[in-house]
Design a protein around this nucleic acid. Sequence first.
DNA 1: TTCTACTGACGAACGCTGTTCGTGTCAACT
DNA 2: AGTTGACACGAACAGCGTTCGTCAGTAGAA
Lengths: 236, 236
Amino acid sequence: MSAAATPAWPSTWDDGSRQPKRRSLSREAIVEVALGIVDAEGLGALSMRRIAQELNTGPASLYAHVSGKEQLVELLLDRVYGDMDHPVPDPGRWREQVTEYLRRSRDNLVAHRDLARVAMAVNIPTTPNALDAAETMLALLRAGGLSKQVAAYGVDLLALYVTSSAYEMSERGEAVTRDQAQDYLDGVRGFFSSLPADRFPVLTSMVPELTRDEGDERFDFGVGVILAGLVAREQA
Amino acid sequence: MSAAATPAWPSTWDDGSRQPKRRSLSREAIVEVALGIVDAEGLGALSMRRIAQELNTGPASLYAHVSGKEQLVELLLDRVYGDMDHPVPDPGRWREQVTEYLRRSRDNLVAHRDLARVAMAVNIPTTPNALDAAETMLALLRAGGLSKQVAAYGVDLLALYVTSSAYEMSERGEAVTRDQAQDYLDGVRGFFSSLPADRFPVLTSMVPELTRDEGDERFDFGVGVILAGLVAREQA
DNA sequence: TTCTACTGACGAACGCTGTTCGTGTCAACT
DNA sequence: AGTTGACACGAACAGCGTTCGTCAGTAGAA
């Protein structure tokens, strides 16, 4: 009376294959389903009940594979870091390599909605793929001739910059269309312009510069500033 | 039959004075109570129910003065920004002024536990006291001779740096004693040292530098890097 | 002064959250 | 063949932000 011997209608076949009933859950499956939810609806929609529902079970079942939601989102973040690949340092091109690697890191985060928010809550990397990223960045900075101490401080600054840039982008990105994102910036511009010039003389004189955001110009500028600052600090 | 005419025992007197019963709530009172909770137990302990309880009422009563928890924490943050005072720009000392102002900003945030976390979720300042801070920073950077565009990008970088530094400090600071904070760093140091040197050659060779955190040295270094980078970018 | 309109206080409830307990059941090892 | 241990899971707990409907007290109009 095996399901293979009696190929009944699809739904029964489905039930038989999807539910060997025992040992069907796994940490990997949970993380994958969770990532799917985040990709589709964002971190706000991620709940233990929702994940369990998507796996046709109850929330309690998840706790055999994951210690809690906190660990789960950490696993999620590391899973995403795992999609990065890592350049071999080329001392002659280290600035370009750093800039490109950071841009890819940011894009990799933004590709999963507001997942960057959990990255902002984690300061020191301890998960495997995050450690790989740190190793890569440190190797690149060292290849650029920075001292150990400057590279150590620098990698923190750069990681922070990438994470928050990604978070900022994801918040803007929740606006469905590109027009809505533009509307948001227009709104900010309008608000700044409406401020009393006598109380905010400097700010109101800089509205175009403050609300400017053209592609990667702003991001690349930030990376350039930090790198230039690190090099300058190196000689001091 | 007024309470003043019949000064009964303290508890009754208390009831009479604390509860003119009508118009007793106010937005300011709510924010102040909320800030007290955050100061005493952190953001995690802040809930509408808890605030209401502290005001001897129910959670529904708060919604007449505040649109929701989101607005409440915004008000909280702005209330804290309001404790800052603002220097008059002195072109000859602009670097020192910026560094000192940022250090004070960080300390002001850290003084209220993990309140910095809500600051990290807000990218563009729109509340009154946050606008004052932005105006101050922009004036200082402009006094330093930075162009409008560089100052505009720079103020974002610096604000981000302050906020995340404060958040990082507050997370460490949840360790009750100074010894526990040191223990945390020792733990990270031990973890990094235990990593396989063949997979993380650069990282494991930099453990002391990565886990170094002596007073304001690290913070000041970051500010110095960004300022030096801004100046360097200015000439480019 | 009397009536009316309105604002704010608030008890109760809704639907949601993360997590734990106890029980049951299957798989594998002795 | 029997025992042990891991895992699935229904039910429940305590808490959350928020909304609804009601009621009291004040303020303005007649």
